[in-house]
């Protein structure tokens, strides 16, 4: 009967119908094939990892210690519970990760990178004229760089090139970190050949912005804002938070009670109140 009906259909319509049916049949066949193939060859989807990855900020800065956000997500999906490693996401990110993993959120204090040097062109001189590649690493390789103080910031901005957040700029021959933009990913810290950048808690009030190892008399010649190791700050500190490592004073941020007594006694203004515009 179907054939009879088909024969009754005019020839012009038949001309379209037959190829149409053939194409539809091929499509159906391929559809079935795709379902079969995807069933046997599908990649295992780690839903937990995907959820973690979408909760992470996606900056791929490497601040957690892994190569990127994917590395950290894999680490957490594999059963780790340390949700505090992402410094870019901060506390909010930690809570979200903890809720996905069903564990207790861990918080760390928000930090920001600080440059432990104030040796601007007004404060210090250069020992020689440097003509090589303009990177800190290269300059550091040649007798510790052209600066009079061999511990000071070279100001060619190796840290600036690796900062993914635009928090670092150059000013007066040294670099400057904007604590508002800084996410404490720590890339600049590992890049600095002089080891001058340090992640300090955002709550920190005072710090010795100097890292030199020269004896006091030589420091005085090298730079007008260098720590000369006079120990005045260590003596005035009511809680003993300032200790001397060699000729240099260092503030222990865990012990500091934020009284600010050490700042006015410093003869070279190397211990300073940190500006906070957060």
């Amino acid at each position: 009967m179907l054939i009879q009906m088909a024969l009754q259909i005019p020839q012009s319509v038949q001309n379209i119908l037959i190829p149409g049916t053939v194409v539809l049949a091929i499509a159906a066949l391929l559809g079935i094939l795709i379902v079969i193939v995807s069933h046997f060859f599908q990649l295992p989807v780690n839903e937990k990892k995907d959820a973690i990855l979408s909760a992470l900020p996606g900056a791929n800065c490497g601040g957690c210690g892994f190569a990127g956000c994917d590395g950290y997500a894999q680490f957490l999906a594999d059963g780790a519970t340390n949700t505090s490693l992402c410094s870019v996401g901060g506390a909010a990110c930690s809570i979200e990760l903890a809720s996905i993993l069903g564990v207790e959120a861990i918080f760390t204090e928000p930090k920001a990178a600080r440059l432990l040097c104030q040796g601007t062109t007004a404060c210090t001189q250069r020992r020689y004229e440097y003509l090589g590649t303009l990177t800190c690493n290269a300059a550091h390789g040649l007798l510790g760089g052209p600066g009079a103080c061999t511990y000071g910031c070279l100001g060619y901005g190796d840290c600036m090139t690796v900062c993914a957040f635009g928090a670092i700029s150059k000013k007066d021959g040294i670099i400057q970190v904007d604590p508002n933009e800084c996410t404490a990913c720590g890339q600049c810290v590992i890049m600095c050949p002089k080891d001058l950048l340090q992640l300090l808690p955002k709550s920190a009030d005072v710090a010795v912005l100097c890292k030199n190892g020269w004896p006091g008399a030589q420091t005085k010649k090298n730079c007008s804002v260098g720590c000369i190791g006079c120990q005045k700050c260590a003596k005035v500190c009511p809680v003993g938070a300032i200790s001397m490592t060699g000729p240099l004073a260092v503030v222990d941020q865990n012990l500091c009670i934020h009284c600010g007594a050490c700042v006015p006694v410093c003869p070279t203004q190397s211990i300073v109140l940190l500006e906070k515009n957060i």
């Binding site: 210690g65 190569a67 590395g71 519970t81 340390n82 590649t133 990177t135 050949p193």
Partner: peptide
């Protein structure tokens, strides 16, 4: 030569970073 010397430092930094990540992983496990 100077560029290559820079490259050596970069590679050493990267290897130190990878070792640090390995340490985090080990301490967590």
């Amino acid at each position: 030569t100077q560029s290559i010397r820079n490259g050596k430092t970069l590679l050493r930094i990267e290897r130190a970073r990878a070792a640090e990540a390995e340490k985090i992983r080990a301490s967590e496990s």
